[in-house]
C-alpha cells in the first residue's frame, strides 16, 4: 500500500522550525532525520523538513545527537 504524505494530507504548506512536536515525529531515537522511504513524505516536504530540523537544532530546540 502506498504511504501518503503527512503534510499533504493535513494541508500543511510550510514547515516551521518552532513546531518541534511535529518535527520529532520524523526523527529517530538518536535525533536523526528519518528517510522518506520510512515516512512516505513527498520530496518537497522532506527538503522543508530537513531545513526546519536543522534550524531547530541550531536554536537548541532539538538535539544534534540524542542518547
Amino acid at each position: 500500500m502506498k504511504k501518503q504524505c503527512y503534510f499533504s494530507q493535513h494541508n500543511i504548506k510550510h514547515i516551521d522550525y518552532k513546531d518541534t512536536e511535529v518535527l520529532k515525529k520524523f526523527l529517530n531515537p538518536h535525533g536523526r532525520i528519518l528517510s522518506r522511504k520510512r515516512t512516505g513524505i513527498a520530496a518537497k516536504y522532506q527538503r522543508q523538513l530537513a531545513m526546519a530540523v536543522k534550524r531547530a537544532r541550531f536554536m537548541g530546540l532539538l538535539p544534534y545527537v540524542a542518547s
Binding site: M1, Y6, K13, H14, I15, K18, D19, E21, V22, K25
Partner: peptide, 17 residues
C-alpha cells in the same frame, strides 16, 4: 506572511498504512 506555526494545532501522526 501567513501563520506557519502550528503549535498545539499540529495534527497527530496516524500511521497511514
Amino acid at each position: 506572511r501567513e501563520d506557519t506555526y502550528l503549535g498545539k494545532r499540529a495534527p497527530a501522526l496516524v500511521p497511514v498504512s
